[in-house]
């Protein structure tokens, strides 16, 4: 009976070298309806058997011996499950490295219990909507008409190489567009797609965000070449986009 129930619970792998954090995290996740296996490092994980039985992994970056990045790479060769990295470093480097080697999300320590649970749930929910992409199928770089987008570094470069800053909503919106060039997207579709991408609430109307985005990327915002308005509601990214896999 108990086994049947726990079998349906998502199984989370937690790797952290700090015993207390491991214990507290395991406790937190069990209380929130997850099945948890918590180990200290990669060796302990291998002693416990394969990684196939887990639905999601939470890895600390700073581990003694083989670090979290190496472990993340190792897991990626065996499985496509979502990986969330925990790091004690607040700078960009860890986030970029983590995402580049195939991690899906990144949380800075110390974190609120609620946040960890919310991020895990968001990742698992996304898994139900769409199956995970193999690393080779992940598109992280896009280019259109000389513009370059790096979705991991979250950087947009103008044709002359200058970095143009976008708000996170604008960036998410642009990614949604370049992933679906030449397709008419209604406001509702855009709202769903952008909301699905971002952890933060989307509190502006799509139209405001689009007009802000146009000001930054269009030569003439009132005569857009990239993001065109379609009559009867909706927008289309009307330029060809080249998408490249990561690396």
């Amino acid at each position: 009976m108990l086994d049947a129930v726990s079998a349906r619970k998502p199984h989370i792998l937690v790797v952290d070298d700090d015993g207390e954090i491991r214990r507290l995290t395991a406790q937190l996740l069990s209380e929130n309806g997850f099945r948890v296996t918590a180990v200290a490092d990669g060796d302990a994980l291998r002693r416990q058997g394969g990684v196939d039985r887990f639905d999601l992994a939470v890895l600390d970056v700073m581990l003694p011996g083989e670090d979290g990045f190496a472990l993340c790479r190792h897991i990626r060769t065996l499985s496509d499950m979502p990986i969330i990295m925990l790091t004690a470093r607040a700078d960009e480097t860890d986030r970029v490295v983590g995402l580049e080697i195939g991690a899906d999300d990144y949380i800075v320590k110390p974190f609120a219990s609620r946040e960890l649970v919310a991020r895990i749930r968001a990742r698992l929910r996304r898994l139900q909507v769409a199956p995970p992409l193999r690393s080779a199928e992940r598109r992280t770089r896009f280019s259109f008409d000389g513009w370059m987008i790096d979705s991991i570094r979250r950087e947009l470069r103008a044709p002359d190489g200058t970095i143009i800053s976008l708000t996170s909503t604008e960036f998410d919106l642009l990614i949604v567009f370049v992933e679906r060039p030449q397709r008419v997207l209604s406001r509702d579709e855009l709202l769903d797609l952008v909301h699905g991408r971002s952890a933060h609430p989307f509190d502006r109307s799509i139209d405001v965000s689009i007009s802000r985005l146009r000001k930054k990327i269009e030569a003439q915002a009132d005569e857009p070449r990239f993001i065109r308005t379609v009559r009867n509601g909706g927008y289309v990214f009307s330029t060809d986009v080249v998408a490249e896999p990561d690396g």
Binding site: I21, A88, P110, S113
Partner: peptide, 20 residues
Amino acid sequence: AAISHDLRTPMTRMRLRVDR
């Protein structure tokens, strides 16, 4: 980096405990 890491570890524990 070491200080940052070593401060964040106990803070993470405290945070997890406070939430309980």
